[in-house]
Design a protein around this nucleic acid. Structure first.
Lengths: 185, 185
DNA sequence: ATTTAAACTTGACAGTGATAAGATTAAGGG
DNA sequence: CCCTTAATCTTATCACTGTCAAGTTTAAAT
């Protein structure tokens, strides 16, 4: 009883979700459209009704996590009251997100698909950081450079965070904090 | 006349060289063992006499550029006389290397194969930076954190350097210098 | 109720990594 | 110098992949 209906009903969404689960567990290289179709209980060609090709699927999947990531950062910004701590907290959140999902980092940045000018987390980061610098009395001309330096450090640490020998301490947050605070902004 | 000899004579080396050329031009995803074999004028199974599998080939190719990269850094260290400038110059060299070969960055760090503890450029960097910090009077305990912060920034900027909107100025070196100097070490 | 278009299946194609079995030849020991 | 041996390479093949064309089913719109 209850045969599978011919139409899945929510295939596109399930492909994205299961696909991201898969990437998180096994990495992008292991992902194939056919396996993904099977996981969703659908024929191997079905995904192509919703995505032009694999590349298109990957791009949309990337947008999907980028949105999640952006929300994480926004949540962080909303909950931090002490504005002086916002830089540190935002950086920490940034690093931890990718520490917890190492596959996502490579998935997002390994294909040169992301452009800074069209990357919401960066917009958000840039905005908040610029504001913070402004209040700290940093002159406008210097802000961009400082922001790029900070962004590079946070982004770089996020990428390195998965490597053995980088964040091996007991207290993850303290460890990250210590590193990010080691330079004067 | 002059038929191709049955034995190539230098296949392993040519595979690595042509493979890296290909990665530099088209990225890792485009690389296939078969195309590579064809480029080297050899049957599709020939590479497997020299490499266990594609993964093994990629690892060895990574070692190959890592060596080149290490040499670049060593050369930099050797030529910079003013020891106070060594941190900046080394960072610049690091960023420029990957700015000039964007594909290499992803190739090296996208697969979680590189471990910091077994990554010569890091060893080199750590050594030089630690020494510099020591002369600057930074206490031993703080050095590791400062070094990781600096490493993160340099490494992060190297990865971001290819993105539009990051290093778009006329003078590349000045641009990088400006960013790296924007924070107090 | 009939049409239309979207969502799916089946079957096919070329390209991929990889292996087994066999052909060629360089290298070294007798 | 010859013969053996092992390294190198080819051919043939397998399972798997991305993708498309053609046909099938069904939801939705008229």
């Amino acid at each position: 009883m209850s045969e599978k209906p011919y139409h899945h009903g929510n295939l596109k969404m399930e492909l994205l979700e299961k696909g991201l689960e898969f990437v998180d567990e096994h990495g992008v290289e292991e992902l194939s459209m056919r396996k993904l179709a099977e996981v969703c209980g659908v024929s191997s060609a079905a995904p192509y009704a919703h995505f032009q090709n694999k590349e298109d699927f990957l791009i949309q999947a990337q947008r999907f996590i980028t949105e999640q990531f952006t929300e994480t950062l926004q949540e962080c910004i909303a909950t931090v009251k002490d504005k002086k701590k916002i830089l540190l907290e935002l950086g920490k959140r940034y690093v931890i997100f990718f520490y917890e999902n190492p596959s996502y980092y490579h998935f997002l940045f390994s294909h040169g698909r992301v452009e800074l000018t069209d990357y919401p987390p960066y917009q958000l980061f840039a905005e908040v950081v610029d504001e913070a610098f402004s209040e700290m009395g940093v002159k406008k001309k210097a802000r961009r450079k400082k922001m790029l330096a900070l962004w590079s450090m946070v982004h770089g640490l996020a990428g390195l965070s998965g490597m053995k020998g980088v964040l091996d301490g007991d207290d993850l947050e303290k460890e990250i904090e210590g590193i990010l605070n080691a330079v004067e902004i």
